[in-house]
Design a protein around this nucleic acid. Structure first.
Length: 226
DNA sequence: TGCCAGGCCCTCTTTAGGGCCTT
């Protein structure tokens, strides 16, 4: 897979539209099937942390008060991410905070997102459920730290992404797995996934190119959807 | 003090409702 970044936020709640703010972020850069760089920081957005969140994450008001300002952390992580496409577990959540926090520092978030949870629902429907912790245990992936902390969750989501990539390559004999392909898979209706992926694989035998970009303008079932 | 969301998916659906998943 080309370079992608897996991110994970810890926050004061569920909705940036209702005043919730990020308290911690981690970003893990994957390149050529390996984790090659990481960024992690608590951040101080000036919000009190609900007791429930402290119980869930272990992140306290004192920890956040001692952390760098959210504006500084978001600027640093935006530089770290650059133009790389992003992946997160339940990406609709992280995407809202990513966009909200970057807008606060006048940065323009433009990355495409893919979601490891939606991918796992498609590719591992037999898993007991599709919570990150359950999938880590199900796939026997390394537990890299405390759940509900950004660094550990981002690392485990990265390992899950690599596991899903390998699953795709072995099961469907794909020559390459790209971020656009992952985004396409999570949008494909469950009943059509097997057929569509096998058609995609046969159309890309021996190819090392990305989904939806067959040579010579050739289109396939994954191509040119926006 | 307690509450607040949103996108996706499945089905007993599609003119809807409820569960999952994230903090």
């Amino acid at each position: 897979m080309e370079s992608v970044v897996v991110i994970d936020f810890e926050t004061t709640g569920l909705s940036p539209d209702h005043g919730d703010r990020a308290t911690e972020i981690a970003a893990v850069l994957i390149r050529d099937g390996q984790i090659v760089a990481q960024y992690q920081s608590l951040m101080n957005a000036g919000r009190r942390i609900p007791a429930f969140i402290t119980q869930l994450t272990g992140i306290t008001d004192a920890m956040v008060r001692a952390a760098p300002p959210a504006s500084q952390v978001m600027a640093e992580v935006a530089d770290f991410v650059g133009d790389h496409p992003l992946i997160a577990h339940n990406a609709s959540f992280d995407r809202r905070f990513w966009e909200a926090e970057l807008r606060r520092i006048d940065r323009c978030p433009a990355q495409p997102f893919a979601c490891s949870m939606l991918l796992a629902r498609r590719l591992l429907p037999e898993a007991p459920n599709h919570k990150l912790g359950t999938l880590v245990e199900y796939a026997r992936l390394p537990v890299t730290g405390r759940y509900h902390r950004a660094q550990a969750d981002a690392e485990m989501a990265a390992h899950l992404t690599l596991y899903l990539e390998q699953h795709l390559i072995e099961r469907f004999r794909l020559a390459a797995v790209t971020h656009p392909l992952l985004a396409e898979i999570q949008r494909t209706p469950k009943g059509r996934l097997e057929t569509s992926l096998r058609r995609y694989a046969s159309g890309h035998a021996g190819s090392a190119t990305a989904a939806g970009h067959g040579r010579g303008g050739r289109k396939n079932s994954w191509s040119e959807r926006s």
